[in-house]
Computed example of a mutant assay.
Amino acid sequence: MSKDVINPYDALRTGLIWGRWKSGERLIPQHLKAEFGCTSSVLREAMLRLAGEGFIVSEKNQGFRTVTHSEETFCEAAHLRLILEREAATLSLQKGDFDWEMAVTAAYQKLAYVEKQMIETQDVQKYVRHWSIQDWEFHATLMSACGSDLLMNAYRSAFDTFRMYAVSTYANFGFGAEITAKEHLDIYEAAIARDVPGCMAAIERHLTLYQEGRRSGAALSSKLPPE
Rank of each mutant, 00 (worst) to 15 (best):
E87W: 08
L82W: 07
E101H: 10
H69W: 09
H79P: 00
F74K: 02
A112W: 01
A88I: 01
I83V: 05
C75L: 11
G54K: 09
E71P: 00
H79T: 15
Y108D: 03
W100P: 01
E87Y: 13
D99L: 14
R86Y: 12
D123K: 10
S132G: 09
K126Y: 14
Y127L: 02
T121D: 04
R65F: 15
V67I: 09
A107Y: 03
A78E: 05
I133V: 03
V67G: 05
E87K: 05
L91S: 07
D97P: 00
Q117I: 00
K116A: 13
C75F: 15
E72S: 14
V124F: 02
K110N: 09
Q62I: 06
V104M: 13
A103E: 04
V57M: 03
F64T: 01
T105S: 15
Q109E: 13
F64Y: 12
K126M: 05
H69D: 09
S92L: 01
H79D: 14
V128F: 12
Y127F: 05
H79N: 15
L80D: 12
D99R: 11
K60H: 15
A77S: 14
K126F: 08
Q62S: 13
A106K: 11
I133Q: 05
H69L: 06
T68M: 05
S132C: 11
